[in-house]
Nucleic acid binder design. Structure first.
Ligand SMILES: [Zn+2]
Length: 224
DNA sequence: CGAGTTTGACCAGCGC
DNA sequence: GCGCTGGTCAAACTCG
């Protein structure tokens, strides 16, 4: 979870071009090897038809090659931007962690301030979570998006509800759960409905279980 | 009767 | 300092 630190994006963008050109060439050879029988109108028709197909295939192939080239350029540009942003974020983390060594870190609202789809996660959240990875002292926080009608999340663990709160800008309340193995297990979770899509539950897990899953059969229909 | 849930009160951080 | 807000506590309540 969140451990995908790979800076290089590797995508195979050769969308069947080789295969396509090979089959095209085979067909081309086949057509060329056809015995020529002069005066045969049927053969002429076939030849015209074949050449039409050939021309269409070549057109298609050129189009796909051009598309492939365009996508490769786009990917290169995106990779370059990703690398630059990553470097920037790391620089920010280093500067803030060195400067905040004198200041005590705030006790609350570290990673839970914003709630929304993964695409709309803001920059400060990303920076905070990156900080989370850098210093291993704070409990691990992970967020999941689950499509569910009720507030029940089948994640294989037993939870005890210890609070519910109406949160600003959300008509649905947020529920607070502790692992039923507490205080031995320190894991907590928060469950609330997504403001954008009310059929989606936003589940935030805090910490890691130090015991086996009591209900391993329960699968998590996660949307990530 | 014990375990789990509900819900109002309380506490602490943060912005103004 | 004050009000707002999110997180937690704990008494009351429910359910098997
Ligand atoms: Zn646990």
């Amino acid at each position: 979870m969140g451990s995908n630190n790979g800076s290089s994006i590797c995508l195979d963008l050769s969308i069947g071009t080789l295969q396509f050109s090979n089959s095209c060439m085979k067909q081309h050879n086949k057509i060329n090897k056809l015995p020529l029988i002069h005066g045969s109108t049927k053969m002429e028709e076939q030849e015209i038809y074949s050449s039409q197909i050939e021309a269409e295939m070549l057109d298609e192939m050129n189009r796909v090659v051009a598309e492939n080239r365009r996508l490769s350029k786009m990917l290169a540009a995106i990779s370059e931007r990703h690398r630059a942003l990553r470097a920037q974020v790391l620089e920010m983390i280093n500067s803030t962690s060195s400067s905040s060594s004198t200041k005590p870190a705030p006790k609350r609202r570290n990673c839970d301030g914003s709630l929304g789809y993964p695409q709309s996660v803001n920059a400060s959240y990303k920076v905070n979570c990156a900080k989370e990875e850098v210093r291993e002292t704070r409990p691990r926080i992970s967020r999941m998006y689950i499509r569910s009608d009720g507030l029940v999340v089948r994640d294989g663990y037993h939870w005890r509800k210890y609070g519910q709160k109406v949160i600003r800008d959300n008509p649905y309340p947020r529920a607070y759960f502790r692992c039923s193995f507490a205080p031995v297990c320190p894991v907590k979770k928060k469950v609330q409905r997504c403001t954008e899509d009310h059929s989606v539950l936003v589940v935030t897990y805090e910490g890691e279980h130090n015991h086996v899953q009591p209900l391993p059969g329960d699968s998590l229909n996660c949307l990530r």
